[in-house]
Design a protein around this nucleic acid. Sequence first.
DNA 1: CATACCGGTGAGAGCGCTTCCAGTACGGAG
DNA 2: CTCCGTACTGGAAGCGCTCTCACCGGTATG
Lengths: 337, 337
Amino acid sequence: MARIEGAHSAPTLEDVARIAGVSRATVSRVVNGGTLVAAKTTEAVREAINELGYHPNKAARSLVTRRTGVIAVIVPETDDRVFSDPYFPQAYHGALQAFIGSDVQVVLAMAEPGDSPSRMVRYLESGHVDGAIIVSHHGPALAQALAHSWQPVVFVGDPEAPGVCYVDLDNVEAARVATRHLIERGARRIATITGPLDMASARARLLGFQEAMTEAGLDPSTYVEGGYTSESGGVAAQLLADHPDLDGLFVANDLMAVTAMNIVQALGRRVPEDVRIVGFDDAAIGQHCTPPLTTMTNPAAEHTREAAEMLMELLAGGTPANPRMLAHSRLVVRGSA
Amino acid sequence: MARIEGAHSAPTLEDVARIAGVSRATVSRVVNGGTLVAAKTTEAVREAINELGYHPNKAARSLVTRRTGVIAVIVPETDDRVFSDPYFPQAYHGALQAFIGSDVQVVLAMAEPGDSPSRMVRYLESGHVDGAIIVSHHGPALAQALAHSWQPVVFVGDPEAPGVCYVDLDNVEAARVATRHLIERGARRIATITGPLDMASARARLLGFQEAMTEAGLDPSTYVEGGYTSESGGVAAQLLADHPDLDGLFVANDLMAVTAMNIVQALGRRVPEDVRIVGFDDAAIGQHCTPPLTTMTNPAAEHTREAAEMLMELLAGGTPANPRMLAHSRLVVRGSA
DNA sequence: CATACCGGTGAGAGCGCTTCCAGTACGGAG
DNA sequence: CTCCGTACTGGAAGCGCTCTCACCGGTATG
């Protein structure tokens, strides 16, 4: 990190060029992967760069390349939610993995309370990032706004807008599988705690539940809306009060499921003997509770990695081979059902 | 978001200027808070901006202003750790709050496994950000490297290097208070589970523990190193095996403390009757276990907010009035001791 | 021997913006 | 009627970089 004393401004290409005795263009070539530069020249330039502690100026570079080298994982949720649901770190991690070694920076952007979709759009259009992966959006507004922009974005979860790339889980089918499992295990009076119904995933899981119930000739109408948060699993108390004979519960994510299970047990019911419970997401928390939670997989990291690969294609100017990916969920049977 | 059809490149100042019938300079003035621009002109420019859907190009702007409008919260920990310890979201939140309304963007940068301090330094010097708040650093290497750079940075936690601004908790005193409380409650054979001893906070808490023990004429030598992670609280098993008569435990953070308490109880000891436990951080998880955890406060959000304010002063070219802040911790007595 | 080609290099034009400096128009003071 | 300050505006330089194009010397080709 040698720095010229007194020189408060960072060294530029020009400085390097002068010291190495070459032109700016040549230094630029060396810096950006030495195409067609003589070995000796390259060497000299490298030395000059080290001597000066030169770093290319990102702003200048991206002014001409029209690339920032940054992509964002955008989560339109407040930070406390992002940090409390293990789904998000997984999702973020997947994006990170996809870009490993490609010297693009991945930033995580969350919403502030009260943010409108337009703030997200503005962020995307502000030129801070080259593209984005959007995770956990509520409603179609964001996707619709983005569909008309030239921004390369990929959604994780059904964007509910045409012409937008996405990776989604087959939530309807997954919910069907979960519900059928409950039925197979002998449950008959089954309810579901849904996610926030402004999210497509929550509605899809509700739909799958209802389909499986109807298919089995059972009453599909008992559900209550949660918020995918741990606390919102507390609606289980209400559910049990209204339906004391409940013997099965499909909960749309594990965070809520664990809370619900605690409540069920606190109310004197045994799990799974009295009430069978199936969660969703296969979160770590579900493995450590008693009994361990039966759940549906939702490999967020894989989904965002897929999304990241789509995004790379978009960024490269291409069209993804499969712009609408549907992934499948697996049932993981543990102790709760 | 009206966009000129067919025009793939975004509108520039020039375009706005032409439509509004003024010069680039004037448009620039309007965009950056209309100093000395006639009301009528401002109006015309605003209209042109809306019509074109103009957004200033960040790269061009920061090329000349030498500002990016981005500050980073840098956490030299891997993402799984950042997402699993509630300390970090709090810390991040504090920084966010400090910059609310000031249109600077706050990004969260984490380490990748195997990252060296020099990668962090490089990131800071790469011109991506104007400054940074560094949280949870291990050892003095980073701070030392940064002390010689011109980067405006503020540490949360003792940087162990001269000439670097920081906000720190008085960990020694806090650990003393925690330990004295254990003693007051009747514990005599007390051990501590420390944090990773390459971190100043962990060493300081160990020191405070030892001081309080010595001061009370008790044996200060029983400790085992943890890693501030939930799993690393498992060292409690070892501790109990080696010291079956243990009756007090000071654990350097709540994540470990909860795990330790579970183990203590699983081994048939009652908390607090047989073993008294005091944690550290006042994390939510400590309120929900049985018995609730007695702990020391560690208001991370406040600390990063303070750090953010220091950083703003640094960014403004000034010197913080109080470049080395020491905050104080409070004992929160709950059920575990 | 003229021509083509090729690896290697430099000159120079901009990318879109801010900002200094030099105007211009206008009103009031001398 | 001149002069000067005030309010506003435009011209133009330049931030640090990339990239096209032209050039140069040397070797292979017709």
